[in-house]
Simulated scan of single mutants.
Amino acid sequence: MSDTVHVRELTDDELTDAWNLGRHAFGSDPQPPPHATAAMPGLTRYGAFDHTGRLRGKAVDLHHEQWWSGRAVSAADVAGVAVAPEARGRGVARALLTGLLRGAHDRGAAVSALFPTVTAPYRACGWDVAGVLRTVDLPTVALPRHRPAPHLTVRAGTPADLPAVVALYERLARDRCGLLTRRGALFDRDYGGDSLPFDGLTLVEHDGQLAGYAGWDRGRGYGGDAVLTVEEVFACTADAARELVAVLASWHSVAPTLRLCLLDGDAISAHLPLEALREHEQQPWMHRPVDVTRAVAARGWPAHVRGHVEFRLTDELADWNTGTWRLEVADGEAQLTRVTAEAGLHLSVRGFALLYSGAGTARSVADAGLLRAAGTDPGALDLLASGGAAQLLDYF
């Protein structure tokens, strides 16, 4: 097989072949869901074809947005990367990701995240591990029980409540870093339809306003191995958090295990017996800039941080990012401008990703070989990491 592949967007009549390629890679059900072989808004599907026109690999650019300190940043989140067994190790994935990044850049994306099955190929293409999506188990019986608060109303939610659910999620997510906005066509199917995206939805209201919710899937059985999976649980007050935890505790007789993903430092976590949790699953996620100027200018920055630093950036897949830059941060804003002077700090795109997402300090990035200081204090680049640590809660 020739090592040269051509990357382009897939046509509708090629989607079945792309599904089968992914099915073989990920062990999916032989019968594709309807959306897998039909045109879908909110994403771009790419294919890599060899010189004979055969599909050798595929990848999907999800047109997400991510919250970064109060601002929605356009993202090209990557999913469904698969390469035919006979074509692996021949640069197909690199060609796919290069084409995807160029297309994402052309449509205005600023950043990109993905969940890898293996990290090495993505690191070679500029992504790096920025965090871990942790799924934990708690003994339901260990949850504290509280008497119902008289000023709160607890009730089952319906599809008519989903706009309020989305609004509460946005209120809690927007001031953090990395969380998806859950806006747009890809989320309309789950949060804008006539059915719930969960088995059940529990709401906590105060004076008719939503103060907390839990979306859960019941699972099967009621014996010792029964699990209640909480797909998402959020509260904007301590009282609402206590109420939701008490509702979840009430499942102890039929679902001994509670399974959920927690948002670091949120109201729910503050009322859970975290000493009793057990790790169920850890899924690392990776990040990289699509366009460094957009990534810096589009996000929010801490209002108390001021400073500037110059550095040289190298990005082999996205050459528009390569160059010498001056980063200036002040008054909750930041910008990158090109400069012609030499810079003592030489940063790889992986190092940029780690700093931007708050996953490392300049010194730790330098220790990892992703930043060369050349006699300059690497700590100056901590300015790029001043936005705090990012987190993802949505698997894609």
Rank of each mutant, 00 (worst) to 15 (best):
L354R: 03
D377A: 06
D175R: 09
G344H: 03
G351C: 03
F396T: 04
E333T: 14
A240Y: 01
D106A: 15
V92S: 01
H280M: 09
R176A: 09
R23H: 10
R218E: 07
L180P: 02
A318Y: 05
T158Q: 08
L168W: 04
L172P: 00
T293E: 14
R88I: 03
D77M: 04
L274D: 11
A164Q: 08
V81K: 03
L262R: 04
D161A: 02
A318R: 10
D13Y: 06
A390C: 11
T181G: 06
R189H: 14
R294N: 12
G42S: 06
T337E: 10
T337Q: 11
A211F: 06
P116G: 06
V78C: 06
L371P: 01
G192Q: 07
R182T: 03
D377E: 10
H346A: 13
C236A: 14
N321F: 12
A110M: 10
R155C: 07
V141H: 12
D77S: 13
D12M: 06
A298M: 13
W68A: 08
A380M: 09
T293P: 08
F187L: 06
A156T: 13
W19F: 15
A368R: 02
V247L: 11
G103L: 05
R288H: 09
A82V: 02
L384N: 00
T237H: 08
Y122M: 07
A109K: 04
R288A: 09
F234T: 04
A359H: 03
G223W: 10
A173I: 02
Q209D: 13
E310S: 15
A75P: 02
E231Q: 13
E279L: 15
H64E: 10
R338L: 04
H35Q: 15
R71K: 15
G221M: 02
V73Y: 00
L371R: 00
K58C: 06
